[in-house]
Computed example of a mutant assay.
Amino acid sequence: MTDWTWDYDPSEEYVAGKLPPGVVAEVERLATELSALGNGSAKVGRPVDREGGLREFDILSGRGFISFLAVPRQRCVHICNVTWYG
């Protein structure tokens, strides 16, 4: 375990306000898992050929994806966007 946390950026209402509750629960579960990886979260998802920067990770069997930033100096994973195809 690490001392990393996660948060919505810029806010929960902006990022997840109109999503179904089950999707929000899955996003928050994945955010918790990403923060548990600590520095390793900068290597998860796309793009696969480099680490850092804005990352993307599929959710719910490809029915959507999250975009996130792993910021080592803040020890935080920022969930920036959720795209849901429903």
Rank of each mutant, 00 (worst) to 15 (best):
C80V: 09
G40E: 15
G52A: 02
D3P: 04
G17P: 10
G64S: 03
D49G: 11
E56Y: 04
R55K: 02
N81H: 10
R50Y: 08
K43G: 11
D3F: 02
V77K: 00
S11P: 01
G64L: 03
G22S: 11
G38R: 04
F57G: 04
P21D: 14
E26V: 11
S41T: 06
K43C: 08
D7M: 11
A25R: 15
E33V: 13
Y85C: 00
P10K: 06
V77Y: 00
V27G: 15
D3V: 02
P47H: 13
G62E: 05
E13G: 06
G22E: 15
D58R: 01
R55A: 03
V44Y: 10
L54E: 04
W4I: 01
P47M: 08
G38N: 11
E51F: 06
W4N: 03
E51G: 13
V24E: 12
K18P: 11
L37T: 09
E12S: 10
I59G: 05
P10G: 09
A31P: 09
G62R: 03
T32V: 07
R29H: 14
K43Y: 10
E51K: 12
N81R: 14
S41Q: 06
W84M: 00
D7E: 15
F68A: 01
E12N: 07
E51W: 13
L19A: 06
V27L: 11
M1V: 10
W4C: 02
R55Y: 08
A42R: 15
S67P: 04
C80M: 06
I59C: 03
R75D: 01
S41W: 09
E56A: 02
A42Y: 12
W4A: 01
S61Q: 10
E56C: 02
N81G: 05
V23F: 14
N39G: 15
G17W: 14
S61D: 12
S11K: 00
G17D: 13
E28Q: 15
Y14A: 14
I79P: 01
R55D: 06
E56M: 02
L54H: 04
L34I: 08
D49P: 09
P47Y: 12
F65R: 02
P20A: 12
D3I: 00
R75T: 01
G52C: 02
Y8R: 04
L37K: 05
G62H: 07
P20K: 10
L30K: 11
Y14L: 11
N81E: 12
E28T: 09
A70E: 00
S67Y: 05
P47C: 13
S61C: 03
R55W: 05
L19K: 12
